[in-house]
Computed example of a mutant assay.
Amino acid sequence: MDAIILDPCCGGRSFWFDQADQRALFGDIRSEEHTLCDGRAFNITPDLNMDFRAMPFPNESFRLVVFDPPHLRRAGSESWLRAKYGILGDDWRDDLRRGFAECFRVLKPEGILIFKWAEVQIPVSQILALTDSKPLFGHKYGRRNGTHWIAFMREAA
């Protein structure tokens, strides 16, 4: 494996400056093509179809993991929000708890996890309670902007 960065919920790779960055492996459970209401194409084309709750990598495989899981509990079945971001199931707490655990498992010691959360339906405080790892830094409050970027570091071996 040549990639040193893992994005296990890449979606449409929207926040990447280079959506084909060779240092990264882009994964997602979905492979889909959509036409948005304004006619633009929105495609989810991961390098590898995978489930962030059970990733197919050995322990300590990546130096950096970017974890941007679905953040919606409710969205119309044909809405562009659901198409773009996906939706959490009824077991969302367990799913995200398992996702955090997997992200830390595949990180090398002292590797970095960048976590992205859009606080539109579930407060980020409820999400951070799903991992024992303590954040280093990031947005503590979403009053002006509901999107949080939070950095973690895996403990040394």
Rank of each mutant, 00 (worst) to 15 (best):
T131K: 05
L107D: 04
S79I: 02
D91M: 10
T131Y: 05
G86F: 07
I5N: 01
A3C: 10
Q22Y: 03
K134F: 02
F17H: 12
F152K: 12
I114P: 00
A75H: 05
H139Y: 04
D95Y: 05
G138H: 02
G12R: 04
D68F: 01
G89R: 12
I114T: 11
L36S: 07
K134I: 15
C37A: 08
H34D: 09
K108Q: 14
D95Q: 13
A20V: 03
D7Y: 10
I87Y: 00
A156V: 11
D132F: 08
P8S: 11
Q126W: 04
D18P: 09
R143T: 14
I114E: 13
S77R: 14
W92N: 05
E60W: 03
I127T: 07
R53I: 00
L25A: 02
F42E: 03
E32R: 13
I114V: 13
D91N: 15
N43Q: 07
P135G: 12
I5K: 09
W80E: 14
V106H: 06
K116A: 13
A3V: 02
G99R: 04
I122F: 00
N49H: 04
P135I: 05
V120C: 08
G89A: 12
H148L: 06
A151L: 13
A151F: 09
W16P: 10
P8Q: 11
D28C: 09
F67K: 12
A54C: 10
Q121P: 05
A129G: 05
L6H: 06
Q19L: 00
T147K: 06
F115R: 02
D28I: 11
I112M: 15
R105I: 07
M50E: 01
R40P: 01
R97G: 00
D7H: 07
Y141Q: 14
T147Q: 12
M50H: 01
D47G: 09
L25I: 09
D51P: 00
G11E: 03
S125H: 05
C9P: 04
R30G: 01
L25N: 01
L81N: 10
L72G: 08
G86T: 13
T147H: 07
G27P: 07
S77Q: 08
Y85P: 02
I114L: 15
E32I: 00
D28Y: 03
W16Q: 10
P69E: 03
C103L: 09
D94L: 13
F115Y: 08
A151V: 11
R23H: 12
F115S: 02
I114Q: 14
F62G: 02
A151D: 01
G39R: 01
F15R: 14
A41R: 11
L88W: 03
D2G: 01
H71V: 01
W16V: 11
T35S: 10
R154I: 06
I29S: 14
V124P: 03
P58T: 11
G27E: 06
L25W: 02
